[in-house]
Write a protein that binds this DNA or RNA. Structure first.
Lengths: 211, 211
DNA sequence: CCCGTGTGGATAGTTCTGCTATCTATTGCA
DNA sequence: TGCAATAGATAGCAGAACTATCCACACGGG
């Protein structure tokens, strides 16, 4: 398969493919001459993955590179690779550590009480603390218990996902599945949350949406 | 309060405040002279909201304008305003409707079976269909049942949120709370999902993260 | 074996977004 | 009186993600 066919099959314009090659998101094709190369199904799949990460996940090129690098690593445990992929998928930046520290103490204690077995330096701990901090800055007076319901939901979802991934034959498929799952199910989860919102608000409000 | 104090209190630089004024995200201050105006607590709160939407929610200026417009509307029912705010919060664009249609038939039927009472033209229905389509294009062979677990989680979360919002004294507070909740709890939910992932993957994998 | 289209690689340009910087004519305040 | 602060206008800038152009060469139907 040459570049024009790769473009036709995936729907990605040739200049964009060249851009991804330049940025090393796509491995070079197999060279047949000084200015000729062929591409295969691996390139098609990788292009599809890139488009999902960029279009659906909203990731930047750097983040995509990070995810792809994590998928490609053969020297790390599955656990590490999953963590690395998750790290690349994070998008917002956080307040300074010293601002976050006191809030993190609270959220960490709450996580502890929940009984989850976690690395003490796991990055999402900071996201959680940052969220609580932002809530308070916007006038909410609350502790980490406000997350209880969300944690129950996340627990149920994650249990199913890990079970699914653990049943896959090889590690590359596992990581790939996890990454796609994270990005796609994120959108699904938000859509479902909105739909459930709509449903429940009908139960609490009258037909005109007034109270 | 003059602009320099507004800047100091919120931490937003003066040129950025001027930019938001230009873009009509912030209402003009009360004029006291040709080149003087004063700002109040409403400006402070609105700036805080803008920063959350932009920094945490990752919304663009246009989307922020949409959310703020929804909050400000006094002629629509709470139900409509919530829908409008949710619409503004959506970020990814979708495949063409004719591509989506057959998949939507499946997801709509599944939503029907779940018993949620929904508007037939509710936008998140498309997000859900688009997700299923993307999953299939990436090699998953599955129906909408794959979302079952997520829907259960979303249902539990949404029930709690609507209950909370319905208990608020006035409508503006309700909309404001819903918007902030959507953006902030989105981050919290993703962080919790990752933490739950970490916990559960320890239960399925051995200490080195291998199987 | 010839020639028009396709190709890889390099370099430069474009568009959009979200700010920043500068300027001008005031105004507030010490 | 004089100097910093202000509103509003205009212009500039940096980063991201492409997109366009160019060149020397290669492929393949006639």
């Amino acid at each position: 398969m040459r570049i024009s066919e790769l473009s036709r099959v995936t729907g990605v314009p040739i200049p964009t493919i060249k851009f991804y090659l330049r940025e090393r998101l796509l491995p070079a094709g197999e060279r047949t001459a000084a200015n000729q190369a062929t591409y295969d199904g691996g390139h098609v799949r990788r292009l599809g993955l890139i488009r999902v990460l960029v279009d659906v996940g909203g990731l930047g090129i750097g983040a995509v590179r990070g995810v792809l690098a994590a998928i490609g690593r053969r020297d790390a445990s599955l656990h590490e690779v999953l963590a690395e992929a998750h790290r690349a998928l994070r998008r917002t930046d956080l307040p300074a550590p010293e601002v976050l520290a006191p809030v993190r103490a609270e959220t960490d204690a709450w996580l502890e009480r929940r009984g989850w077995v976690l690395d003490p330096s796991s990055p999402p701990r900071d996201d959680l603390a940052a969220t609580l901090l932002a809530l308070r800055q916007l006038g909410w007076e609350t502790g980490p218990e406000i997350f209880e319901r969300y944690a129950d939901a996340a627990d149920a979802v994650a249990a199913a996902e890990v079970e699914h991934v653990a049943g896959l034959p090889d590690r590359e498929a596992a990581v790939r599945t996890m990454v796609i799952g994270t990005v796609l199910f994120e959108r699904a989860l938000l859509a479902l949350r909105r739909l459930a919102h709509e449903h429940h608000s009908r139960l609490h409000l009258d037909d005109d949406g007034r109270r």
